[in-house]
Design a protein around this nucleic acid. Structure first.
Lengths: 202, 202
DNA sequence: AATTAAAGTTTCTTCTGTAAACATGAGCCT
DNA sequence: AGGCTCATGTTTACAGAAGAAACTTTAATT
């Protein structure tokens, strides 16, 4: 009760506080159906105060998504920067990092790729997403360089890799990669399929 | 003005009419932010009438998603059932059918995989989705049988294939598979990567 | 010390979802 | 035919939300 009343009129960093509250609600509920008023209430501020920092509810959601992309990028960059016996192992570890991130933050991950995180109307969000996508791209380039990966159009390889990893992440958080459905080590197995190919080429 | 007033009290098939209106709005706006009242208004019916057919707004959305899965299944089944020189070509055509469906119905496709189409609380939706997923699964089984595809755990292969196709569809409708970004024939290229593998095995 | 502008609050309007009570009419039973 | 009944409509009511506008507080600048 010590700070119930003697809170100063000005919050100090309400923008950040609102973001933190919203991220917490997103993590708790695993959805972003919360209202802006509820966020304001939990932050202990009037329902109109958020509008001083965010044009509307959707702008807050896009900021949450942007933060999500930054964090995802950090996770993948960290996983990628360790020592590996092969580029292949490095690829798997980086992919696993993305999928783990989705598993730990399903709500946030869904938001990042939902239509509420429209990258065409928010340059900052767009850039954050692009920066994150650039991380695995470097891995592919290095892999082609050192002979680990086939030398085909890097763009196609990147699209395929990203589609695969993102697709697995989405399947994972929809509960469709459970052991009983898909065997043990489902992600490893699926990544092996991508790495070795579907066809019998040999 | 001929039928403005002399509409009968009972609609006849309001449930279907509401679904049609909602599908049309989804197709026009490419999002499902429409309100239930607006759907009712456009269907020419009072704002409470929909509740006689749908428990709440989310239930209508799940029904739209269910219809989406049925239609997607039809598209893939049709593409798959044609004559092909190889199982590989059949696989590509089926994948393309899914991605084309997403391109033609981006709003609906997004809804189908959004958290508003929660398969864990709607058995009918869950079943429709499973029926659709089963279609490419048969293709993989046949491909393993006839020696076109590697004989690895079918579940892992299915997960990888589905992840790849769904991932590409999502990238496509996010405008991230444009020629200038990803080269010509981006989908074909990405699918080739999956089919042949990322690694230099040969 | 006075002024200003950013960051809060209060108040108000318009909308939504949803519940409850009421109205209509199509189909069935006699 | 006459009347019941129930699914399917409508009307009315209400709580809560978005967002605009006008007002208040306080930190910072001059």
């Amino acid at each position: 009760m010590s700070e119930t009343k003697n809170r100063p009129y000005h919050h100090g960093d309400l923008r950040r506080a609102l973001i933190d509250t919203a991220l917490a609600m997103l993590a708790t509920d695993q959805n972003w159906t919360f209202t802006l008023r509820e966020v304001a209430r939990r932050t202990g501020v009037s329902h109109a105060a958020p509008y001083k920092h965010f044009q509307d509810r959707e702008m807050l959601l896009r900021e949450l998504a942007r933060i999500g992309f930054v964090r995802l990028g950090e996770c993948m960059a960290e996983a990628m920067s360790q020592d590996f016996p092969s580029t292949r192992a490095q690829f798997v570890a980086t992919a696993q990092a993305c999928i783990d991130f989705a598993r730990c933050n399903p709500g946030l991950y869904r938001l990042m790729f939902s239509s509420d995180a429209d990258k065409t109307i928010d340059p900052q969000l767009h850039d954050a997403a692009m920066d994150t996508f650039a991380i695995p791209l470097r891995l592919l380039e290095d892999g082609q360089e050192d002979g680990s990966f086939r030398k085909v159009a890097i763009r196609a390889q990147a699209a395929a890799s990203w589609a695969q990893v993102h697709g697995l992440a989405m399947l994972a958080i929809s509960g469709q990669l459970l052991e009983e459905k898909v065997g043990a080590e489902p992600v490893q197995g699926a990544l092996d399929v991508l790495l070795d190919g579907l066809c019998c080429s040999d």
